[in-house]
Amino acid sequence: MNTWIILNADLRIAMLASAWGAGSLNVITAEQVAIAACVIVPIGIAVATLADRMHLLELGDDTASALGVRTGGTRLTLIVLGVCLTAAVTAMAGPIAFISLAAPQIARRLTGSASVTLTASASVGALLLVCSDVLAQRLFAPTQIPVGIVTVCLGGLYLVWLLIQEARKR
């Protein structure tokens, strides 16, 4: 369906949609950032207010319930908020692959802990995205490539490295 829409659209719109599909920060305007911020900031505040309950859920449902957390409602709320945050940033920049898969694993290795905090994971994800965007802008300068292409390449290399590390442990 996406391909059909792109083939039948105006050339300029088709090019923008194609760049969005690869995950691109090149065509984002200040107006889009402002609109996304109006959605992201309130949802981020809601997630921050639920952070203590999120950590209690890591202890298991029985322990969290004993400590006064409504596990079902809290889990559902966190899932809905996570989907809303993901939808907001994906609508703006397109699907940028591998950031959400690699960032928590890298953050866990950097912090040396068994679990990953939301702040560490988000910070590493932001750093990965900025570094990938700089590479996307400078790699084939003056032509800018979509950042999603860089993250797919880096994510693939990271996945291969992880597989090799796991194979060496066995």
Rank of each mutant, 00 (worst) to 15 (best):
A120S: 09
L163F: 03
I45F: 05
A46P: 03
C153Y: 06
I96G: 08
A126T: 01
L110K: 01
I35A: 07
G68A: 06
F140C: 11
A64H: 11
L128A: 08
A103E: 04
A87Q: 06
L118A: 13
S132D: 00
G156E: 14
A107S: 08
V150M: 02
A37G: 03
A46T: 07
W4C: 13
V124R: 03
S115R: 15
Q144R: 13
L127P: 05
A103L: 08
S24R: 07
A17L: 13
D52Q: 13
L67N: 10
G112P: 02
T90M: 07
T117G: 10
L163W: 11
W4F: 12
S100H: 08
L57D: 13
A9T: 15
I28A: 00
V80P: 02
A48P: 08
V47Y: 00
L16R: 15
V33F: 02
I13T: 15
L7T: 13
A14F: 07
I40R: 11
L67A: 09
L57V: 02
V41H: 03
L128N: 06
R168D: 01
L76W: 00
R12K: 15
Q144F: 08
D61A: 11
S132Y: 02
M15R: 14
A64Y: 09
T3L: 14
A167D: 06
L135F: 06
D133S: 03
L154E: 09
A120D: 09
M92T: 09
I6E: 11
A102C: 07
A46Q: 02
L11G: 13
I79T: 13
D61Q: 10
A14G: 15
T49D: 07
A22D: 13
L16D: 14
L129N: 05
I149Y: 09
A34N: 04
V130I: 09
D62N: 12
E58S: 12
L135G: 06
V147Y: 00
L67I: 04
I79P: 05
T49R: 14
Q137T: 02
A9W: 08
